[in-house]
């Protein structure tokens, strides 16, 4: 199976129905993308597929062969992703950090589609779970990025 991940072509020797998450983690040693629930409930495994936020724990690799996959490892190679990370740092968003790879990917996807999201847009898009309760910091960081008043800080 050929996968285009972060602009690099990778060959992975897995069955076509293997979830992308486990190809990333176990075959490619890219562990920045996290396993949380395996049911697309929590969003810790979020990656971008052709710019869209996708739950990699329920996405078979055969579905994304030929697509352009972006993981947290390459998020700063993307201008918008780099700004999102900078805003995360400025707003000191993470606590334990385990869900934050997914949150950063989800926020990048949202801002790509809706550069100036309302609270309702954020509510609808940012459905990833955070047990530490960093939600208000996430919302503030996204508004900050959307306002254009800052480059995300840092």
């Amino acid at each position: 199976m050929e996968l285009n991940i972060n602009g690099i072509q990778h060959h992975v020797d897995v069955e076509p129905d293997t979830p992308l998450l486990w190809a990333l983690r176990d075959d490619l040693a890219m562990t920045g993308t996290k396993y949380g629930c395996g049911l697309a409930q929590c969003g810790a495994c979020t990656v971008l597929v052709d710019g869209q936020a996708v739950r990699s724990c329920v996405t078979p690799v055969e579905k994304v062969a030929g697509a352009s996959i972006t993981t947290i490892e390459a998020i700063e190679q993307d201008d918008l992703g780099k700004r999102v990370v900078a805003a995360w740092v400025k707003h000191q968003v993470p606590q334990c950090g385990y869900c934050q790879s997914g949150q950063v990917m989800a926020a990048t996807s949202l801002l790509r589609q809706v550069p100036h999201p309302t609270d309702a847009d954020i509510d609808a898009a940012m459905v990833n779970l955070c047990r530490c309760g960093t939600y208000n910091a996430i919302r503030a960081a996204i508004h900050d990025l959307a306002s254009g008043s800052t480059d995300g800080g840092a």
Binding site: R25, T31, G32, K34, E76, V93, P94, C96, G97, S101
Partner: peptide, 15 residues
């Protein structure tokens, strides 16, 4: 620990 946690660079036990 914020930058590392914002870029997936932290290794938790599971990693």
């Amino acid at each position: 620990d914020i930058y590392e946690k914002s870029t997936g660079k932290v290794d938790y036990a599971i990693d």
